[in-house]
């Protein structure tokens, strides 16, 4: 089954994107790819050799398993919510720091640490 290969390839690629990129928005994109890879994996599990779509019809006895589809519907919703939260956090980080590059943010945090601030000052 090629689907498994595709899924694994996407998964590894996505993981690489998440780890290697310092841009927070790109990280969110990577996460989206990662969950899509998992969706493909699930859909592949549900396929039954020679089966059709799971709709009751005359003359058909072999159906694909609909349960993984239903599960993945839930997981897609979760994925959308995750992307939304991630992006809105990125927007607020941009507003607070003026950048979405991770290394610049880390730099600013380090400076704050050295200045002896302990996380109690107001954002503004």
């Amino acid at each position: 089954m090629y689907d498994y290969l595709v899924s694994v390839f996407l998964m590894m690629g996505a993981l690489y994107v998440v780890i290697a990129h310092g841009n927070l928005v790109k990280k969110v994109i990577g996460l989206g790819m990662f969950s899509t890879a998992v969706f493909i994996l699930y859909i592949t599990i549900g396929k039954v050799e020679g089966g059709t779509a799971p709709i009751l019809e005359e003359g058909v006895t072999v159906y694909s398993n609909p349960l993984p589809h239903v599960l993945i519907l839930t997981a897609i919703v979760v994925g959308v919510a995750t992307t939304a939260v991630g992006l809105s956090l990125a927007v607020r980080i941009k507003a607070a720091y003026g950048t979405v590059e991770e290394d610049e943010i880390t730099e600013m945090n380090l400076q704050a640490e050295e200045a002896g601030q302990d996380g109690t000052e107001d954002e503004s």
Binding site: S35, G86, L89, Y97, A112, Q117, G119, D122, E123
Partner: peptide, 17 residues
């Protein structure tokens, strides 16, 4: 209140997801 909270939340989001 601190802006570092945002960064912490984002890191947690990536690892948690």
């Amino acid at each position: 209140r601190d802006r570092r909270a945002l960064n912490a939340a984002f890191q947690y989001l990536v690892m948690g997801t």
